[in-house]
């Protein structure tokens, strides 16, 4: 399992990166592996507003649909539309294939890489 040190993680298996005052969100390697081959991504729209803990996107494998949650209360300012044509990017490059960029505040205790790895190990047991 790949867990880049510089990122923050939510217990619902999203990663968050701060970039130019915005928060970039994607799903973790652990999440994509658990979901299996993704075939569709239901992206949010620009300017959609969410509260921390809301589902802002859903991803779909041939097995199931899973919500992707945001730990941020705020507004979507950019959406990675490349995922619409190539949802498999989430499997191939989970930390490169960001889903959306948010403007707002983190309102959830996020884990660092080490804590997240430990959290996943416990969850697997």
């Amino acid at each position: 399992m790949n867990t880049p040190r510089e990122l923050k993680y939510a217990k619902t298996h999203e990663w968050v990166k701060e970039e130019d005052g915005l928060y970039v969100i994607g799903i973790t390697d652990y999440a994509q592996d658990a979901l299996g081959s993704l075939v569709f991504v239901n992206l949010p729209e620009l300017d959609d507003e969410f509260e921390a803990g809301d589902a802002f996107c859903d991803v779909e494998s041939v097995k199931a649909v899973s919500d992707v949650m945001t730990p941020i209360t705020g507004r979507v300012v950019e959406v990675n539309e490349a995922l619409l044509d190539a949802p498999e990017l989430l499997n191939e490059d989970p930390y490169g294939a960001w889903i959306a960029k948010f403007e707002g505040e983190i309102e959830e205790d996020l884990l660092d890489a080490e804590e997240y790895e430990e959290f996943c190990e416990n969850e697997a047991e």
Binding site: F40, N42, E45, L84, D85
Partner: peptide
């Protein structure tokens, strides 16, 4: 519905 547009575009 938004998802129909997205799915059809794909």
């Amino acid at each position: 519905d938004k998802e129909i547009s997205q799915n059809l575009t794909q």
